[in-house]
Computed example of a mutant assay.
Amino acid sequence: MTISRTQLFFMIIKTQIGIGLLSLPSDTQSIAGGDSWISVLLAGAVIQLVLFVYWHLLKKYPNDTLSEITIHLLGRYLGKAINVVYYAFFVLIAAYACSLYAELINIWMLPLTPGWVLLLLIVGTSVYLALDNLRVIARFFVFSSILFVVLILISFLNFNSVMHISNILPVGQSGMMPILSGSEKTFFSMLGFEVTLYFYSQVQGNRKGMLSVISAANGFVTLFYTYFVLICLMGLSPKALEQVNEPVLFLFKGLSFQLFDRLDLIFLTIWIIPMTATIVSYLCVAGKSLTTKRGSYRKLVWFSGGIVFITAWFITTIENMRPFSKWLEYGYLIMIAAVPVLLWLSSFLVKTHEKVGSV
């Protein structure tokens, strides 16, 4: 089942934009201060370099997903072993994201609802969507992307309050090293672009100009994150940003209008859809990492959903998440950057071998 370029664009941004945005302004401000927005732009530039490597690799194997490329370049046994690792990794990422989503909803909206109930609802909805074919999933992502426009329109209401542009001036005051450290933190909040490795081959028609499509998706996400970091920096004092965990929601909490109240809950209610879309994407690529057959894929999604629920419930019992999240970040760098780069370099050896063999 194929998708269009536009659908690929929205599938990438819907996977990238998730829960990380809500806490990003406070996380980066504690490191880079008023230059946090620069850190976001630098993180976007680094991701663009990674996407450039993806494009070069996928251009050589335009009809193959990453799971098929690994087998082609590394051989049947090593390639399948790598794909199993990718499957486990994607399931773990989905479980980690589910635990964060459930915790966020529990704190801000449903404090009396048991965590396992929230996890069941999140995982159940995600599995239901991931079971369908890729074109249906892509159409849902495109349709629901209109909510980004709603969120941006809601954010404009903050400009009725006092915005302190002095909080981000002078530009570059934090120094290069804090800005670079902030970009590292931002990089892990913008992950999700790796789904390109699995969805690229599903795009119908000529693949010419695909670099522009994936670059445009990264550009949109980068500017989207930069915008919300900026309004948090200007709308909240540095001390306030240090004390709140989700400054984006906190910024809306103080807004009240005659027709509606508690904009933070309205914002979060809408935000649940992009958060769920991230889980759907990871369940989808987890299934595609081990099989290309429709029947096997559906069974694997059901199985993956069960593992995600159990793992997410276990993660919620961990008191100190910092060591676990740090380990996950290192794993992410290996799986989405190091391995694709090595595969790309290996593709030159395979190509050279094929040329020698054909002479």
Rank of each mutant, 00 (worst) to 15 (best):
A286T: 00
S36W: 05
S347T: 08
D35G: 07
E184M: 14
F89N: 00
G254P: 14
G172N: 12
E194F: 05
S126R: 01
T222G: 11
D261M: 06
G209D: 03
Q173C: 01
V203G: 01
K239A: 15
Y227P: 01
L328G: 04
T125P: 05
A240G: 01
F252S: 03
W271F: 13
M321F: 04
L74N: 15
L100D: 07
R207K: 15
Q16V: 11
L66Q: 11
L259G: 02
K293P: 02
N158S: 06
A277Y: 03
S189R: 02
T311V: 08
S347D: 14
T317L: 02
W55K: 14
M177D: 14
G295E: 10
F303N: 08
I82E: 09
A312Y: 01
L197M: 15
S256F: 09
A95F: 06
R5A: 08
R135L: 09
V123T: 11
V280N: 05
L169W: 09
W313A: 08
A102L: 00
F89I: 04
L157T: 14
N320H: 03
V136C: 13
L112F: 12
Q173M: 13
I71P: 13
G18Y: 07
M109D: 11
S166C: 04
I47L: 13
V50I: 15
F159L: 07
H353K: 15
S174G: 12
L24S: 04
S346D: 11
N133S: 11
S126V: 03
K355E: 13
Y96R: 06
F224I: 07
A88C: 13
L211K: 06
E319N: 04
S346P: 05
K299D: 05
N106P: 09
S215I: 08
F250W: 10
W108I: 12
L233W: 03
A81R: 15
N245V: 09
M210A: 12
A277E: 12
G254W: 06
S215T: 10
I168L: 02
T316M: 03
I231R: 00
E68F: 02
A312Q: 03
F156T: 10
Q173N: 12
V248N: 01
L51P: 00
F187E: 06
W271S: 09
F89D: 02
T226K: 05
Y225T: 02
Q258R: 12
T65I: 10
F143M: 14
I38V: 14
S26C: 03
G331E: 06
L100G: 09
K239N: 14
D35T: 10
G305S: 08
F250P: 01
K60T: 05
V84W: 10
N245W: 09
V280F: 08
G33V: 11
T292W: 02
T2K: 06
V53R: 13
E319Q: 01
